[in-house]
Design a protein around this nucleic acid. Structure first.
Lengths: 216, 216
DNA sequence: TATTATTTTTAGACTTGTCTAAAAAATTAC
DNA sequence: GTAATTTTTTAGACAAGTCTAAAAATAATA
């Protein structure tokens, strides 16, 4: 099996891979809040275990085996988040750190039973899709509010920023998953988005509009 | 906070302390399947953190702080075992290794919510008492079947041996928690105990009788 | 294209937790 | 009460994962 550190590197590489094909040492170091030299050491180790494709100075990508491990960790993370929110009544901004620990519990039998216990949920509390027990991951079909034109709208279905400050802000504004919104106006000066929601009108910054996702 | 290794040592010392007042280096080494020299190193570390009372060659005992940590780990272990059996339908001989990992999840808020979610259970699936959130642990009021005289009886309420071989054997014999048994005879040759249970008569060895606990 | 700047890797060191082998203390035996 | 045995500790080493500082490779620039 893989160590905790290895699992965290694989997860980070997986997430960065959705942005760029090949991931650089510095990107990984930044994502993991560590030094580039530490990353290099670990890359050699992961390469020896054939979990990544790596040649010096050329960046890395996950092998099929590495991706499988990464997706499994993400599956665990999201299922535990769902459990914490739906069964233990935590708020969506409180669960990240706990799930970060729980995702490393090794038993797959445990996570499959948990999945079943909760009725095979499709998305976690932040709207991220939950991979099934075969590693099948629903393709992301959400887009940011900032991509909408005036008079377009949709159902709030996810977030791109998972930080608790952001989630708490959304909660305070009532911008929670399931709410229907419509874009009334986009102020050209700074791209502030004016939204209609539940007979209320509210303004969100370009930044917020970029990180708040709706189903099309 | 404490490392995983530290937590496991504290737990081992706690368990050994129920047998003897002061715990020896070799006892700990045996319990943890490690070498005495490794234990000595860790004892100095735990002593520096004032989690144990330790003077060279004199054996160790937990300080109040150390006992608090140990009981908290045991609380977590037993609550997770209860969850795995009662909510995820695992069998009582399958849950130990998973609970061994889950007991190190740090959040106390999480474990308190889990406790509440399950209705504040008093005993884990093996009959061991679950400490409450203040570290209060019900005193053990169970005794082995081997301590009963002929014609005495009681309700099967716990086990002393948690190994899966033993638990599977009990399950196969129908000797599960909640069953009422009566001692019909004790064969003097080898102390085999003859039991009456549900209109059935069965024999168990002295060894088994020693590890199967009943409420008085 | 030669030079500068950036990125990545190497070299060497530190920490945690483990080990083996040897020394020191405590215990048991005669 | 000394000698033999057992237990415990020390000394020194190793693997994993991290770090700093310096070297090497790549990319950017003039």
């Amino acid at each position: 099996m893989n160590t905790l550190a290895e699992e965290n590197y694989l997860k980070a590489i997986y997430k960065l891979s959705s942005l760029t094909e090949s991931v650089s040492t510095n990107q990984i170091a930044a994502a993991m809040e560590t030094k580039a030299s530490s990353v290099t050491d670990m890359l050699r180790k992961l390469s020896d275990k054939t979990l990544i494709n790596y040649t010096r100075y050329q960046g890395v990508s996950l092998t099929e085996a590495g991706e499988k491990v990464a997706i499994n960790i993400i599956r665990k993370h999201r299922l535990w988040e769902y459990f914490l929110v739906e069964k233990l009544n935590f708020k969506w901004d409180e669960v990240h750190d706990m799930a970060e620990e729980l995702e490393h519990i090794s038993s797959n039998e445990l996570i499959d039973r948990l999945d079943e216990f909760m009725g095979f949920p499709k998305r976690d509390p932040h709207g991220d899709p939950i991979p099934d027990c075969n590693g099948q991951l629903k393709i992301n079909d959400l887009k940011p509010i900032s991509a909408l034109a005036v008079s377009a709208g949709g159902i709030i279905s996810g977030v791109r920023d998972h930080s608790s400050v952001f989630l708490q802000y959304l909660e305070k504004q009532g911008l929670i998953i399931g709410k229907k919104i419509t874009v009334k106006e986009i102020i050209s000066y700074d791209n502030t988005v004016v939204l209609q929601m539940d007979n209320k009108v509210l303004q969100i910054s370009r930044e917020v509009a970029n990180n708040l996702l709706i189903a099309i």
